[in-house]
Simulated scan of single mutants.
Amino acid sequence: MFNLNWKRFGMVAGLSLTLVAAGCGSSEDEGNETTGDSEGGESSSEEVNYGEELNYEITGIEAGAGVVATAETAVEEYENLSGWEVSTSSSGAMATALGEAVENEEPIVVTGWTPHWKFAKYDLKYLEDPKEVFGGEEQIKTMVRQGLEEEKPNAYKILDQFNWEAADMESVMLEITNGTSEQEAAQNWISENQDKVDAWTEGTEEVDGTEVELVYVNWDSEIASTNVIAEVMREQGFDVTITPLDNGPMWESVASGEVTGMVAAWLPGTHGDLYEEHKDSLEDLGANLEGAKIGLVVPEYMDVDSIEDLKPAE
């Protein structure tokens, strides 16, 4: 009986120790399993290395564009963008690359801005910018050469009164993108928004062939706005020429008085440096569109929400 009890005690004790060990082992295993899941999650996240898939390139537009320069600054400011580069091309090439990526549901990071038809066509998002490198909202402003008000007051007044909203611009942009000619898309918008056009021409007189030259950077947004205001001025009797230029020459031509003006000045960020360089040699007529924005843009299906979610080059 005594020996049997000891035997039972030994069995119970052994079983208890086994359970305790198992319990400890289970706890540790669970801990390891949790850590494993966590590490597995990180590993999984690391496996979806968008940077590696993109060869650590941000698809930009024209070299010299403010949004490109700011993206280059972001690459320097964000440690996690170490090894990344901003690849310059053109706004058209950027839009083509974006469209191809979206069609194939592939990752892409582009220099983006609003207003732009791509936001009406694709499901996109701006990456959060915790360091505020890209700044806040921008304005698109009208700049004219000095002396225009005295020499061509009707042209001056129409340009001064030109003002519309992002939705207006994007509707023209999207129509052009869908195949309508730039001039026809502008004319269509004018016929559908005569009340706004009347406000731009209010207090002006029709002219007979007064020459006006407007310049613009070859962005979809500025193609839309410049064609619209050009058509409005043509209806008032002006002989209007519109000329696409790179950013620097666009500002220089207005500041030097070679051309009448532009409705394509993105401030304070995108064209900030150019404005500082030329502001004393031209006249700022103020904003023709509020609420513009620049930043890094990705398709909604990409599992990143912030610039800081991107990974550095290895």
Score class of each variant (00 low, 15 high):
218 N>S: 12
185 A>Q: 14
273 D>L: 04
34 T>P: 09
66 G>A: 07
59 T>I: 09
291 G>M: 08
232 V>K: 12
291 G>C: 06
212 V>C: 01
192 E>K: 00
97 A>C: 03
224 A>S: 05
124 L>C: 04
14 G>F: 15
294 I>G: 06
124 L>R: 07
245 L>G: 05
220 D>R: 12
255 A>W: 05
105 E>H: 02
243 T>L: 06
305 D>Y: 15
79 E>A: 07
255 A>E: 07
225 S>D: 11
124 L>A: 03
283 E>W: 00
266 W>A: 03
240 V>K: 02
174 L>T: 10
228 V>Y: 09
120 A>H: 03
121 K>E: 14
126 Y>R: 11
301 Y>W: 15
304 V>C: 03
248 G>E: 15
221 S>Q: 14
246 D>M: 09
27 S>A: 07
35 T>E: 15
93 A>V: 11
79 E>S: 08
174 L>H: 07
313 A>H: 12
64 G>N: 12
227 N>L: 03
157 K>P: 04
17 L>S: 10
207 V>W: 04
295 G>T: 01
4 L>Q: 09
106 E>P: 08
156 Y>H: 14
292 A>K: 12
160 D>Y: 15
45 S>K: 14
55 N>A: 08
246 D>Q: 14
149 E>C: 02
67 V>T: 14
170 E>L: 09
205 E>A: 00
155 A>M: 08
214 L>T: 04
162 F>Q: 13
227 N>M: 05
219 W>N: 11
206 E>M: 06
33 E>S: 09
75 V>S: 00
97 A>F: 03
69 A>P: 01
136 G>N: 13
183 Q>A: 02
137 E>F: 03
79 E>W: 07
86 V>E: 08
29 D>C: 02
257 G>Y: 06
294 I>P: 00
312 P>V: 04
127 L>P: 04
53 E>A: 05
89 S>G: 12
2 F>L: 10
134 F>P: 00
282 L>C: 00
3 N>L: 10
99 G>H: 04
37 D>K: 15
278 H>L: 06
263 V>D: 05
179 G>D: 13
33 E>C: 05
163 N>P: 12
54 L>F: 05
161 Q>Y: 09
283 E>M: 06
37 D>G: 15
245 L>I: 12
129 D>P: 00
217 V>D: 10
116 H>G: 00
148 L>T: 03
72 E>C: 04
258 E>T: 05
94 M>W: 15
158 I>D: 01
85 E>L: 08
31 G>S: 12
83 G>A: 07
192 E>H: 01
171 S>W: 12
41 G>W: 14
166 A>V: 11
197 V>G: 10
67 V>G: 03
313 A>S: 13
290 E>A: 03
32 N>V: 04
212 V>H: 02
78 Y>F: 01
256 S>G: 06
18 T>S: 11
210 T>M: 08
112 G>C: 01
251 W>A: 10
226 T>I: 09
53 E>T: 03
164 W>G: 10
296 L>M: 02
10 G>I: 10
191 S>V: 01
7 K>M: 07
